[in-house]
């Protein structure tokens, strides 16, 4: 499907720039051009598609649905799935949290949403397809959804309401299901498209520099690091690799755009995919800035429990990946 991009890359590197096929520089440059074009196209498609889906499932509708319907345990899975189609900005996490709590949605269900939303987002999915292929992407998405669901159920079982900050407890006490007045915007797809389009361009503009730098670093590593280089340090049998990289990744904050292209090269050079996915989930799903924001609504103990449970689930899924992939 992407052969034509390879032709463009080959033509540019070997004919226009007139580089020799054996040079490191040529290899790196070829890789950079091919990956950049392919990934930008895929990102565009995925972000646009998710934009359309999200336009019909705005967050208010999600809340309204989750708070009105009796779902017999399925609400965790649903909240997690809604998290996939909702674009996430860490600065919205607090209003989201309060909004859900106020709508009478249980804490665990709210967490399920909050965990999956950053973990499986349109940018990560677009990059994943471009870098690792459809099969690995599906595995990532499904495990991200399950991770949110399971963590949500565990967190609900821990009865954490008492560790909310006082003013949130007041909100919780006043929560009423009725006050939720959601009015759907009656817009045709034609009316929605300009808004979606503007959002797509804005997201792309924001991430393109990171993507390009990431691919450039990846390209250099691709040309200069020998195949299997990392296998010496991190083979599948090294049981400590997964927890170590996950714990390293949690405080890190990067939009997936910069880090994914580098990780792809690391996998290519011998790091097991499960270890790499655990690392990415740690980077994308949890971050120190998010923890700081959540301090307004949660006590330290609650944030620590939340991060602890999710980290544990990420480590477990890293092991599972290394076994099945």
């Amino acid at each position: 499907m992407f052969d034509w991009i390879q032709h463009i890359a080959d033509w540019l590197v070997y004919s226009v720039f007139n580089l020799n096929t054996n040079q490191h520089l040529a290899k790196a440059l070829n890789f950079f051009i091919y990956d950049s074009i392919k990934i930008l196209i895929l990102l565009f498609v995925v972000i646009f598609f998710m934009g359309i889906v999200n336009s019909y499932f705005p967050i208010d509708k999600v809340r309204s649905y989750l708070s009105k319907n009796k779902l017999y345990g399925l609400e965790y899975l649903l909240a997690s799935l809604f998290g996939v189609v909702t674009p996430f900005c860490s600065c919205s996490s607090v209003p989201l949290f309060i909004g859900f709590v106020r709508g009478g949605i249980p804490l665990g269900v709210t967490f399920a949403f909050l965990i999956t939303s950053p973990l499986v987002n349109e940018v990560a999915v677009g990059l994943f397809i471009g870098l690792f292929g459809v099969k690995t992407t599906l595995i990532y998405v499904i495990s991200g959804v399950l991770l949110g669901t399971i963590s949500g159920i565990i967190l609900q079982k821990l009865k954490l309401e008492r560790f909310l900050t006082p003013w949130v407890k007041t909100v919780l006490a006043d929560a009423q299901r009725e006050q939720d007045l959601f009015q759907e915007e009656k817009l045709s797809l034609k009316q929605r498209l300009p808004i979606i389009w503007a959002e797509v361009l804005k997201i792309l503009k924001g991430i393109i520099p990171y993507v390009l730098v990431g691919i450039a670093i990846g390209g250099l590593m691709h040309g200069y690091i020998s195949e299997g280089f990392f296998e010496r340090y991190m083979d599948k049998d090294n049981l400590f690799a997964v927890p170590i990289v996950t714990i390293l990744a949690v405080p890190m904050y990067s939009n997936a755009s910069g880090i994914l292209p580098v990780v792809q090269v690391l996998v290519h050079k011998g790091i097991p995919l499960g270890t790499a996915i655990a690392f990415m989930m740690g980077v994308v799903g949890l971050s120190l800035p998010e923890a700081m924001l959540l301090k307004k609504v949660m006590t330290f103990k609650l944030i620590a429990t939340f991060f602890g449970v999710v980290t544990l689930c990420i480590i477990l899924s890293g092991y599972v990946f290394n076994i099945i992939l």
Partner: peptide, 13 residues
């Protein structure tokens, strides 16, 4: 101020 913001019943900023 987040408490002030929440009075407007919004979930995304």
């Amino acid at each position: 101020d987040i408490m002030e913001i929440m009075k407007y019943n919004i979930m995304t900023t």
